[in-house]
Structures are given as C-alpha cells and as structure tokens.
C-alpha cells in the first residue's frame, strides 16, 4: 500500500512550479506593497520571472522616469529558496532566506520613518547594525540603496 503524504506532495508541487509565488510569499509581498502604497512610494506592482522561471515581483512608482522602485526575486541557492531585493538600477539592497523577515523589517522601517527617501537608506543601514539580526540567519548587503533616492 502506498501512503501519500500530502504535505510532502504539496511541497514537491511547489518546486515543480518555481515560476509561481507561493500563497504565503504573495501575502508577504502584498504587505510590503501596502506599506509602500500608503506612503505613496509605490503605486502599482507587477509579476515576472527570470529566464529560469524564477519569480520576480516589481514594485512600481507612478513616476515613469523611476518606474521600478524595487524588485524582489526568489532564486535557488544551494538547493534552497533565496530572496534577493534590488533597486531599479541593479543595486543589491538585501538578500536572505526568509522573505517574511525581510518584509517585516521593511514594513516596520517604512512605516516608522517619515519620508521614503530617508526610509530606504535608513532601513538598510539599520539592518546592518542590528545585533543578532544579520549574524547567522541573514545577510544584508547595502550597496546602492541611495540609488533609490
């Protein structure tokens, strides 16, 4: 008799559909968008994928000259999901294995800071200096967050 473990089967299905965001991920992305939308930073969003069918999420500005404010991608790194956040000019803003952690901190900082120009730089700057945050579970890279400004 074959016993099917639906949880495992569901997880396998997810990996067969890497071009899709999982429902939990989509919810996190929507939370991030909601914060940026309320602050007037992002006015719309789009989905896309890489050549390898890895999902991307684009946060878009109303300003046609700026267009993409930030891009969230999920790629495979050493066989695991890895999230990459970049600005519209290719600057690597943040990366890590937990999208929820990324989004939670992003929401907190964007919500608490008054201007989005300050918020972007401060968000990534603060992440770098938080004790125990960037240590073993996370890697944050602040290469060009000011490019967003």
């Amino acid at each position: 008799m074959t016993v099917m473990h639906f949880g495992a089967a569901r997880d396998k299905m997810r990996w067969k559909l890497p071009q899709c965001w999982h429902s939990e991920e989509a919810a996190e992305l929507m939370r991030l968008y909601a914060v940026l939308n309320r602050r007037g930073v992002a006015t719309s969003y789009e989905y896309g994928e890489t050549e390898g069918r890895e999902p991307q999420f684009y946060l878009l500005s109303a300003d046609p000259r700026e267009d993409c404010i930030s891009c969230v991608s999920r790629i495979l790194k050493a066989g695991h999901s890895w999230y990459v956040i970049e600005d519209g000019l290719g600057g690597l803003l943040a990366e890590g294995y937990s999208l929820s952690i990324l989004v939670r901190h992003a929401r907190r900082y964007w919500r608490s800071l008054r201007g989005h120009l300050v918020a972007v730089a401060s968000f990534f700057g603060e992440l770098l200096t938080r004790d125990g945050f960037a240590a073993d579970s996370f890697e944050i890279v602040m290469t060009s967050s000011l490019a967003l400004c």
Partner: peptide
C-alpha cells in the same frame, strides 16, 4: 552577484 537584474531589465522593469 545575481542575474536577477538582467531579468528585471529584460522584462521592462529596470533600465
């Protein structure tokens, strides 16, 4: 570091 930006540009969401 990553190829995701190439995809972003090719999809028309970056320059």
């Amino acid at each position: 570091k990553y190829y995701t930006f190439i995809s972003q540009v090719e999809n028309g969401f970056g320059r």
